[in-house]
Design a protein around this nucleic acid. Structure first.
Length: 359
RNA sequence: UGGGAUGUAGCCAAGCGGUAAGGCACCAGACUUUGACUCUGGCAUUCGCAGGUUCGAUCCCUGCCAUCCCAG
């Protein structure tokens, strides 16, 4: 029996390589591209996800579908993204998008069409563990490209229907693969930044497109001394240095955002460290539940190194996490992902950071 | 209109006769599914203005202007 799989295609190197691989491995593949936002916002004349994907699918010889899910994307990704900023948090929309759109809406479409699975170009691996009876999410062979950080929200049910064909690949290999097949998608520039804000100016995006206004307020130091005026709370995140426009003896960083007083507190590099944090909305992957203390390495930001820590379960699907060594710029709204070796134990959203040494 | 001090890029600040350090900020690039961090590169033909001395002045002299402090 041939296995049927829906391959998510963005037109880029990775997803195109996935479609090629699956087709050559004998899967019954259907390519699918999501229309997440209206033309003009995310697409420029230089490329089009739909066109590039369709062209690639034709060359590979597989059918290709386009799903217009702008409404779902708006309510599940963009709205929460905006709300988070309004409450002073720093969201990571990619995490939300994977959870509710790619492995939510798209997976559901695939299942409805009678397909067995969905495949994406993420650099990660899924393994079924006979002992625990659970699907494990593991880091990609190319640890430099590993993307498990943005996949920690996946449930067992989702993982069961997911394929990550590039889990054992290196970026260069994926590119070489499709170049060898004559697919021009190999030349596409690496995607980065937030997909629905192509120019990266999210401040302008929030204000102009979403009509969200973040009024100017004050910059102060830790003692409350006023250092200047900021351009709106949403334009800053913990640990940020650039764009403050404050000249001082040494670099200043955002150490705290106070939504209540609309104040951005800045300080020196040494003020950025936290030795503990509380995370909520915890999703566990490798285990069903955490009953006691657990040790793990924890990543608090997409491209930050993991740090050893002790996890303590709290009420309300929350965890208290104590780092062995204080971590820099632990930011509410960002995700924290816990690892045991190369396997994802779970993850959650950072609610607050603490520093027992100072309090 | 008495006395003292200071005027170097957006900010702070070296230089004190030999042809403009450094830091912060800013800009560009690299890195990056977070405009975070980090890294690399750029950033005063010119030293308040006008003269003078000198082969040569930001550094010496004169005047002017500006700012600050002390003026009982």
């Amino acid at each position: 029996m041939t296995k049927t799989v829906m391959a998510a295609m963005s037109g880029g190197v990775d997803s195109t390589a996935v479609a090629v691989l699956l087709a050559e491995q004998g899967y019954d593949v259907t390519g699918a591209t999501l229309r997440l936002h209206s033309a003009g916002i995310g697409e420029t004349e230089s490329y089009s996800a739909e066109d590039d994907s369709r062209a690639a699918a034709r060359l590979i010889g597989i059918p290709h579908l386009v799903f217009d899910i702008q409404d779902a994307f708006n309510t599940s990704v963009i709205k929460p993204f905006a709300d988070a900023y309004l409450s002073g948090l720093t969201p990571n929309p990619c995490v939300e998008c994977n959870k509710t759109v790619k492995f939510g809406v798209l997976l559901q479409k695939a299942l409805e069409l009678g397909m067995d699975r969905i495949a994406t170009g993420h650099y990660a691996r899924v393994e079924y563990d006979d002992v625990s009876g659970r699907y494990l999410l593991k880091k990609a062979a190319d640890t430099a490209k590993d993307q498990t950080y943005v996949l920690y929200t996946l449930s067992q049910q989702q993982l069961k229907h997911v394929l990550f064909p590039l889990g054992g690949f290196k970026k260069d290999e994926a590119r070489a693969l499709i170049t060898a097949r004559g697919l021009t998608n190999a030349q596409r520039k690496e995607s980065q930044d937030i997909c629905f804000i192509p120019d990266g100016d999210y401040g302008a995006y929030l204000e102009n497109t979403l009509n969200i206004h973040s009024p100017p307020g004050l910059f102060t130091d830790l003692t409350g001394r006023v250092l200047g005026e900021h351009k709106g709370l949403i334009r800053y995140t913990i640990g940020q240095r650039r764009g403050l426009g404050i000249s001082a003896e040494r670099p200043l960083y955002v150490v705290m955002k106070d939504a209540a007083t609309n104040t951005v507190v800045v300080g020196g590099e040494e003020n950025l460290y936290s030795d503990s944090m509380t995370v909520g909305h915890v999703n566990l992957i490798a285990v069903k539940e955490l009953k006691e203390l657990a040790r793990a390495t924890v990543k608090t930001r997409y491209s930050q190194k993991e740090a050893p820590a002790t996890l303590t379960p709290l009420e309300g699907n929350r965890l208290h996490i104590q780092f062995d060594v204080p971590q820099r710029a632990v930011t509410p709204g960002q995700s924290a992902v816990f690892y045991t070796g190369d396997s994802v134990l779970g993850g959650g959203k950072i609610i607050s950071a603490g520093n027992s040494a100072k309090e």
